[in-house]
Nucleic acid binder design. Structure first.
Lengths: 233, 233
DNA sequence: CTTCGTTGTATACAATCGTATACCTTATTA
DNA sequence: TAATAAGGTATACGATTGTATACAACGAAG
């Protein structure tokens, strides 16, 4: 069964790939015909029904796969970035002890993460195009699924920020709120990143400063002005 | 001619209205058929060709109209908000003179603007749905047009922030960059606002704090930590 | 070896599609 | 008043659509 599913589900995989291609290159998921999809996958139209109930079903399946393929790697990116700045075994130093060190570290982690994120986007452009497109697309089902996915990202990010000590103490809710804004912004920027290769450096840099602005702003508003002031001195 | 255009262009207006309805309620612009559109407008299919070359043309026309109907009102909202906090004739007081006053005023303007913005969204939901949907939609033409529109918003916002003295001095570019992030976030949130009426207060509030975080963060990073610290004292 | 579920194909058909051509009204204008 | 242009309709046609029904290949289970 499991072998059957991974080996013989060739048609299913072909259809999902074709859907990614069509979505990326031209239309949105609900805008091309079943026959067009099948043609692009080199299959008989009816084969679609063997695997999917309708286009929402297809979309959900793709999104689910995206979820598995992207979420964990993104977390790894963040850890990787954090550890590239401070080696894993080194002793923790609190923001109170050394604001400047933590500030610089935080910015570096942010910049490295941004860079790695966009590299990840570059290597999976179709998945991101589909995701962002359907996030505001015509299917309520897909919209809901993608919002949940993005909420998941934000939660991961918030958790990582806390665990890695990337910000002075914030309330759970405001930390999550900041993470949500950041992830929305990053996904939005990923479209520009894909579509305007000549602006990639600029986009990367802008994303970085936006994140810094947001996080430092939230820290300041949470009562850590003194810390930030010290860090900037 | 001008009378003809505004009085007798009934069909054109009907088609544009039908497109808005279809886009808002179900599909994206390129996902419904010409006949479906005409049917929904109560017109003969061929009437479409009397006014539009293709769907991109229709979309551009709608977007152009959106631009005219939304851009100026949004500026007015901001002025209105600013003047509701500080009456028009009153003497200007610089951030250096009184950080706290300017800080409070800035937050109030932000909150009022956010509230007015979402009320505006609520009264033109279809236009916003179409705009946000096609911003990441399948037509490159419409995407480009909508990005320009959003860039325009951001420029307006940056200009207003400067003229109204809502932030300590920032460089032109970083001010514009902040405005771009804010406008992206606001448009994105407008979808949630429309779709989740029960969360409207929460969304409104979150938008407000995000703006404050971003702007204050950018002020801090631009070297105004002292000012902000004084304001928060 | 037979049976059966899975995956894919072939054929078929009514509905819908985009659009070409021709025609009708109405308002403007020469 | 006659001519013209613009806005809208009617009809028609070939292409494409979604999907129903029937059938073929094949690995697994009995």
């Amino acid at each position: 069964m499991s072998q059957t599913k991974s080996v013989l589900a060739e048609g299913k995989r072909l259809l999902m790939g074709a859907a990614l291609n069509l979505t990326a290159n031209t239309r949105s998921l609900s805008a091309f015909s079943l026959r067009e999809l099948a043609r692009s996958a080199g299959l008989n139209p009816n084969t679609f029904y063997r695997h999917f109930k309708d286009f929402d079903d297809l979309g959900l399946t793709i999104i689910e796969e995206m979820m598995n393929q992207i979420r964990q790697p993104l977390r790894d990116l963040r850890r990787e970035a954090a550890e590239s700045v401070v080696p894993p075994g080194s002793p923790a130093i609190s923001w109170q002890e050394n604001p400047r060190l933590n500030f610089v570290r935080s910015i570096q982690v942010s910049n490295v993460t941004v860079k790695l994120f966009f590299e990840f986007v570059e290597s999976n452009p179709k998945a991101f195009i589909l995701g962002v497109r359907e996030l505001h697309g015509s299917s309520p089902v897909l919209r809901k699924a993608l919002r949940q996915l993005m909420k998941g990202f934000a939660q991961d990010m918030a958790e990582d920020i806390e665990v890695l000590g990337l910000l002075p103490t914030l309330s759970q809710e405001s930390l999550l709120s900041v993470a949500e804004v950041i992830s929305r912004e990053m996904f939005q920027l990923s479209m520009d990143y894909i579509e305007e290769p000549e602006r990639r450096d600029e986009i990367c840099q802008q994303a970085g400063t936006s994140i810094v602005n947001l996080t430092m702003g939230s820290a300041v508003m949470a009562g850590h002005v003194g810390l930030i002031a010290d860090a900037l001195r």
